[in-house]
Design a protein around this nucleic acid. Structure first.
Lengths: 243, 243
DNA sequence: CCAAAAGTGTTGGCTCTACACCCATGA
DNA sequence: TCATGGGTGTAGAGCCAACACTTTTGG
């Protein structure tokens, strides 16, 4: 989580009573639940994720993934969406739960279990932070993140790993691309995220073999041969059988 | 979770105040965190998981995976281990976090976010329930579970899916087998869990090719040709590169 | 006509699958 | 000697990686 102070309440609730012997008060103290979301997008040829700067508390000035406490009666996915919208203005991203991080010392202020999410959008301009909760926000290249609060280094690694893995056997890529794109753009996306070069011919064969794409009649023009544009048959999640 | 009433406190804490307008009281109400663990073992040639029967509350009589609330200051893994030990006597299982289930309606009594775990042991006789918290416990074949409480059907499917997947590219199998075993036993384990027949020769080649096993000098004897016994080089988690 | 990016096939190696017979032991 | 499970090899198909030249357009 990271669970920066939320606008809907203070964060220090439910500390164990200071009674070290553990009277009834200590038994009532329970960890809180938060969500934190790693939002990815491609901007100027780099894979980036969105960070917000903490404004208050012992971690003031550090960067973190947007997140906050889950409300009573709220779905985890909804909490992630709500916090992401509040912190970045991003509205309907692809969203996927990653893992839960529950080390009680991950947040110096309280015991908060964070359910980490990954979110993808196709246009980085959709994100901007005006929330008074944070000192600002912005896109950072995943390979050179600033010092992160909480255990967010760990969360970042986990998210990147998941994204890489899912490129290989699902159609997630479509959530990082516009509806229609050239094969070269798709290839660059893969090359970017997997951080290695890709053979154009083999890539084309393989991807087309998955049967997730269709060619549109549109073309992209430039001072060179025009490129055919493609579209994913569906933007819903699909998994390719690999046997 | 499932989060049956725990021995260390009632479960209805932190309900939102009945004030429907949402005064300060409602803002303090937060979901609780629980862990629930799907414990697997092979018994008499079947893949089984361990269920406990709920004794109190609206779900009385239903079966569920053992679990309970996470304590303040406790690691998630530790909570899973603690609850598993208390409910089944199982001590040092292989343990792996699966997914978090947070639907507020999953538990009729309260909003409880459950972090689901999978645990593996090599001997089903290690598990038994004497906890007064439950009306008993036992091993059930995964393909014919009784009616489960909470969203534990979902948890069960998720756990089985994860187990199947990890058989293919890790050494998890070793956590369901004794330290030393014949190739046939290993093959039967795979066949059992993946629920399909396996070609003995190809299986042998493939598994040996992964380089995770070593042959011991011991043999298993019976009224037939003796079987060579093998051992996993390490029982620590290992992943095989598949390229 | 030049620059820039798009588009396209083939080959060799490797991996995977399918498949059936002999072996070692105990009873 | 028979029953039981243990142990082994090979051939064909499909898959994947490596590799370079031609095409189309705009300037």
């Amino acid at each position: 989580m990271g669970t920066p102070p939320t606008s809907d309440g203070p964060r220090h609730l439910k500390r164990p009573a200071k009674d070290p012997a553990g009277g009834p008060a200590i038994r009532l103290a329970r960890p809180n639940v938060a969500v934190d979301t790693v939002l990815f997008a491609v901007e100027s040829g780099r894979l980036r994720c969105y960070l917000v700067q903490l404004k208050r508390g012992p971690l003031e000035g550090k960067w973190a993934f947007p997140g906050g406490l889950v409300r009573f009666g709220e779905l985890l996915d909804d909490a992630a969406r709500r916090e992401l919208l509040a912190s970045t203005g991003v509205n309907e991203p692809y969203l996927e739960q990653l893992f839960s991080f529950g080390d009680p010392s991950r947040d110096p202020r309280a015991h908060v279990v964070s359910v980490a999410y990954m979110a993808l959008i196709d246009d980085p301009r959709l994100a901007a932070t005006q929330s008074s909760k944070y000192g600002g926000g912005g896109w950072f290249e995943v390979s050179s993140l600033p010092g992160l609060a909480y255990d967010h280094e760990l969360v970042a690694r986990y998210a990147l790993g998941r994204l890489k893995a899912k490129l290989e056997y699902t159609n997630v890529a479509c959530r990082l691309l516009p509806a229609v794109f050239s094969f070269t753009e798709l290839e660059e996306l893969y090359s970017l995220i997997l951080d290695r070069q890709i053979d154009r011919r083999n890539f084309r064969r393989r991807i087309l073999g998955m049967g997730l794409l269709e060619r549109t009649s549109a073309q992209r023009r430039g001072s060179h041969r025009p490129a055919a544009l493609y579209r994913f048959l569906t933007r819903d999640s699909q998994t390719v059988e690999m046997l």
